[in-house]
Amino acid sequence: MENLAMTLGPDNGFMRVKNPTQRSLLRILDFALRHRVAAAPLVEQLAFEHQGAESTTLRQVAYMLASDVSTISALEQTRGAVDETTLLALRLAEETGTLAETYELCLREDSDARFRVDDPTYSPSSQLLQRALGILTACFVLTFLAMFIIPTFAKMFEEFGLSLPGFTLLMIVLFDRFGFLLLLFTLAIIAWLVVFALWLRDWQWQPWKPAYPKRPTSVRLRALLALVVGSGRPVAAAMETLTKFQTSSAIRNRLVAARQSMRNGEDPWLAMANQNLLRRQEAESLRLAPDDSTQRWLLQQAAVSGAHRYESVCGILLQSVSFLLLLILASVVGATSIGFFMVLCELISALT
């Protein structure tokens, strides 16, 4: 780890791979690189330890490695072998000769614990799903009450020759007229849960598997730039790799424009700032930095700051939406409870 710190420096856990299957694959590739042995048989053996799509992915990687395809190309051509950020980091490392050190960064255990979004339990997507499931349960209960329980009470009062309390009668009228909206809202939540779960899993239906949250594209870009600067490679030279293998079309177009500006003689950092890839203040600081280590530190701090901003914004939005939905549900449930309580009181007084 000391050699790693001297070569690339700490990355605050941004390069750490969290998926267990991907970590196992990278660990085998790292072992094969360091001991100069063939990786294909080892990956094939790893495939036997998995089932389903994971086994298929590993077998495809093993097949391509056995066909004399380079390690990074095999990972690139196999969908789901590694995530986009890891693939870009490994591609850059292959070009700069720091592949072993980058493997070590991807496999490190001491990720930055300051970011709660790294934990699937505390990620905004997981918390939002928990809120949605709670709302779904409440909607099911209210729909059941509106469709079965309230009509039963109405018939009971009619048989006893009693008149319903005014508030309860108002609730029945509202349920009769607008109850279908509650049913539509419930169906909309179910549809949203399905779509959101598919989106988290890259549109592959595997709800039994955990979803590992991704950092924002801007944060990942800064972390990759810090990796480039730490390896000693000029940023302008690495822009071609970042552009070629960037999956986000919006970021790729900005990188293309920034690279064209660099070719026209513009400072690399200012060119990226002009394309909104970096903040203007960040670009000025990077341009005036005295050496590569200072630039790497600035980029890492910018990534940390961006991750904190993302976590704060997600937290505020999550709490605001949760509070609003909780307030609406509390009002509906409270009104329904009062209506039923008044019905029970009326029945008890009539029987006594």
Rank of each mutant, 00 (worst) to 15 (best):
N19V: 12
T102G: 03
R309W: 13
I348S: 11
L145A: 08
G230K: 01
F178V: 08
V117R: 10
R16P: 03
N12L: 07
L221G: 00
V219A: 05
I149A: 10
R177M: 02
L99N: 03
A39W: 02
G232I: 07
I28M: 04
A330M: 05
P213L: 14
A89N: 09
E158C: 03
M342Q: 15
K18A: 14
T86L: 04
P120W: 12
F31K: 12
T21L: 05
Q130C: 02
L162E: 08
G179D: 04
S331I: 06
R16V: 14
C139R: 06
L90R: 07
Q281T: 12
T247M: 13
A289F: 00
L298Q: 02
L164F: 13
P210F: 14
R131Q: 07
T243D: 14
I150W: 08
N274H: 15
L182W: 11
L326M: 11
A38E: 09
L33M: 07
L26P: 06
V195P: 07
V219P: 01
E159R: 15
T85L: 05
S111K: 13
W203K: 01
M342K: 14
L33A: 11
P41I: 05
D83Y: 02
A100E: 05
E158R: 12
F157N: 09
F153K: 15
A258P: 01
L187Y: 11
I338H: 07
L8W: 06
L107V: 04
S231M: 11
L347K: 03
D202Q: 15
N3C: 06
I328H: 05
A38L: 06
L75Y: 04
L344Q: 05
G80A: 01
L105P: 00
R131C: 01
R279Q: 10
R280T: 08
A237I: 08
T243K: 14
L184V: 09
L317A: 03
E266R: 14
G339Q: 01
L183P: 00
T152N: 14
L164N: 11
L128T: 09
L227E: 03
E240Y: 07
V313W: 10
V173K: 13
N274R: 13
V43F: 06
L318M: 08
G315E: 05
L324N: 07
E266K: 13
A188E: 03
R296P: 00
V61N: 00
F115K: 00
Q300S: 01
L317R: 01
R16D: 09
E266S: 12
L227D: 01
S349G: 11
D119H: 03
A188Q: 07
L221N: 00
A191D: 09
R201L: 06
F48L: 12
V37I: 11
T294V: 10
L277A: 02
D119A: 05
L58G: 04
I135R: 12
I149Y: 10
F340T: 00
V321W: 06
L325W: 13
A5W: 13
P124Y: 12
H50C: 04
G265A: 10
N276S: 10
S285W: 07
P151E: 08
L107G: 04
V321A: 15
R222P: 07
A289I: 00
K155R: 11
A154M: 10
A237H: 12
R36I: 02
E104A: 06
F31G: 04
L324F: 15
P10I: 01
Q45N: 08
Q45V: 00
E95C: 05
L288K: 11
L145Q: 03
